[in-house]
Amino acid sequence: MIGDWLDIGPVSQISPGNARTMPVRGGREVAIFHTLNNEFYALVNACPHKGGPLSQGIVHGTVVACPLHNWNISLKTGEALGEDKGCVPTIPLRIDAGRIYLLRSAVIAPAPAG
């Protein structure tokens, strides 16, 4: 079980309301979010609209507003909210003993947005 999860370090690396990035060689950059409500989510770091870096958006509730055109993207499902349509792949994440783990297979090859 442990082997399937990639340990990317302690939760304290990401301050609440912020996101940090993790490039994947040969893959798509991942953004890991820490919400003000103290939850963690990981998405491919590209807005379904024009590929904007979601990691740079304002996080509110469980939503990030894309920095390019203000699309609101759900951190839980990767889906665009409101009138906008589109979805970005999410990467399963879990927290254990203060460390963040991402599902290894999803990091290398994120599931197509569903």
Binding site: I8, R20, T21, M22, P23, V24, R25, R104, V107
Partner: peptide, 22 residues
């Protein structure tokens, strides 16, 4: 500095397990 630096970089290797570079 956390606003600028990547958390880490993933470099999947063909034979060895995945390497995480900080």
């Amino acid at each position: 500095a956390d606003l600028h630096q990547h958390l880490a970089e993933v470099r999947p290797l063909e034979l060895a397990p995945m390497e995480l570079v900080r």
